[in-house]
Design a protein around this nucleic acid. Structure first.
Lengths: 215, 215, 215, 215
DNA sequence: TATGAATGAGAATTCATTCAT
DNA sequence: TATGAATGAATTCTCATTCAT
């Protein structure tokens, strides 16, 4: 149709999409840095290099914008998780890989943790109102259940492990260390983000989880 | 009492102390509910039932007030930790008790987690500026080191366990579950705060940590 | 029709006319509902089902659009007045008919009153700038003068009645009741728009005017 | 008490009251000139010579401020009406006086008409939400009923006249002329506010009403 | 003729903070 | 110690209008 053939239409369409994505990225950074309450629409516009009014044009208001950012963040992590192919690996290797992935993802995407904190401060209202809630549900739980079951059958893993609990434990061990790294560093008087400290943390996490699972 | 013997100066001091504590408690609740950015000085005054001007009189500004709240929160948890007497217990029992304490404390003081989130969002600037930083440092690490060492000597625990890492892992497993309970509940489609879910979480945490430590 | 004979220029003209009229009607409704200050160009476009830009294309800006709506409103009422043929009737019947017409017109076109209110709030600037001012002048005054004169000659009406004053009185009695119906209903605690209330108002108006005129 | 005796308390109290009244007067003028939609909070603050924030401090928001202005306007006119003492006069004189009062009041308080127009544009929502609605109800209706009744008994007035209808007619004849004076002047090509035109209007109104009532 | 994208200037409202007593 | 009044600087959001095709 005209839309697709006319150079005008296509470009315009692409521009609209590009603008929306630019805004989303800028908003993600702003929300990550200042939280939902501390984020400033002005700064988001500035970051995006676009007119503030345009944010409202596309996203209605600050809350809806945050919701869009949150959805996008979940979509991103789910997309990456989908690349893991844990079922192709030995159970112990699969678990190790999951731990590494979790750790690396949080490390590479500190904004994800801040967004989650903001979302929880608001009692996950933004997720509840999301129409794409299904996309949020991690398929990883199913996969992890398969890995655990295979490990148990093969005799390398203990039985009776709830994959949800295990997933939360892995995430929690990484999340707490990274998300609270500033207060923890202050309290313990060591820099938790130094390369050595980081690799020690990953080793510890792996040891704990595999030490627990192995029989 | 002061009240009866000296109607003048001392009484006023008492009132001053009481006012300060009232403000602190109100501020803690407000910061916990809305975060540092979302908290409103007006609402804090209202919660405290005191004039807004008085907050400035005692705490200078919002940042300093947050700092005072944060310090108070750390002082509270340290006070409780001091009651644990872990060294009087068998190593396994001591670890179990620590896990239970951590879990129960976060459960009873959800504001502590929110305060930490806010503090970290601001890169722990409020701790760095605190003059009472020593109070923050947990004596628990020393104690935990003793427990781990005794367990190792007695042959019940593995060796080479960093007490800081272990402490962070225990805290992380509890914290992540409780602090992110809204988003997690939304994603997993189950109510993580139901009594049964809660007790299952505690069991899981204990199993993981003791499963890992035991040899 | 044009449609069938000339697919090119004429058809486009028809569309153009139709679009303009659609916009005018949408704008009239919007101005009537929210007043000039409260009307929103966005909503007018939405009501018209046409692109906002088109409004500017045809009407230049909001003020000019309001002016066009106002002119159209006057054109409408003048057109209707022209159907009255008061001079064909007995003087008393003619006056009665004029009262009924005025009442019915305001009742059927509440937007006319709101438009007048807006126009007067802006000191009728929009009329002053109108090039079609002649169309505004009501030929009814001439006609009413004739009716009054005939009544006087026939001995049924008193003399010395200024047709402009009378016209304003008739309009005012209807207008005030209908335009201020919300505040009046609130104050008097009765629903002035109930059918019975409405017919009583019409009777009263007729009685007052004819009671005054008759000798 | 302290409030009344201490110079501080009293002055402060008076200041608060004075500020509120200053704001009310400024708001009344602004609303009268631009309508509710066109009024600007900035300009109201400027007119009042007070900080904009203070308006919100005392009146919450624009709507509530308009409501307060409207209530004040009704209170004002009711206060004046209360001075009329119509029952002390001969029926015809009383009616004449009422007409003159209505005319003079609208003439001296054109803002009252604009406020009513705005209120009706918003379907009198502001009155409906007013807690002082009783104050709005005009005691004049009762009085007018008494006047009409006495006139009928004395044989000078016709019977069967609804005082509400009559009141609305008197008000309407004055209101329409004055409120719509700009459009009417434009249409009729005469200045309706010229002294002569004004006195002619008042005469006409009196003639119509008394001509109707008299028997 | 028609339209989606984009914008600058405002507008209401909010907020931490200070004044004056 | 305590308080009501007052303020300046944001902050979110809105609106008429224009751009580019």
């Amino acid at each position: 149709m005209a839309r697709e053939t006319s150079p005008g239409g296509e470009e315009r369409l692409r521009d609209a999409d590009r603008s929306q994505n630019t805004i989303l990225a800028a908003a993600r950074d702003e929300f990550a840095e200042y939280g939902l309450g501390g984020a400033r629409m002005d700064r988001i516009a500035e970051r995006a290099g676009l007119n503030k009014r345009l944010i409202y044009y596309y996203f209605e208001d600050k809350e809806k914008l945050f919701q869009a950012v949150l959805e996008q963040a979940y979509r991103d992590i789910r997309e990456q998780e989908a690349q893991l192919h844990l079922l192709d690996l030995e159970p112990a290797t699969a678990v190790r890989r999951l731990i590494e992935f979790t750790w690396d993802y949080y490390l590479a995407h500190p904004e994800f943790m801040t967004l989650l904190n903001s979302a929880n401060l608001h009692k996950a209202r933004h997720l509840a109102e999301s129409k794409r809630a299904r996309e949020l549900n991690s398929p990883l739980i199913e996969t992890l259940a398969g890995v655990l079951e295979r490990g148990r059958r093969e005799g390398s893993f203990r039985g009776g492990v709830d994959p949800v609990q295990l997933y939360v434990s892995i995430a929690g061990m990484a999340y707490f260390y990274l998300s609270n790294n500033y207060t923890l560093s202050a309290i313990f008087g060591r820099d938790l983000m130094a390369p050595k400290a980081r690799s020690e943390r990953l080793s510890h996490m792996t040891e704990v989880i595999l030490g627990y699972l192995s029989r």
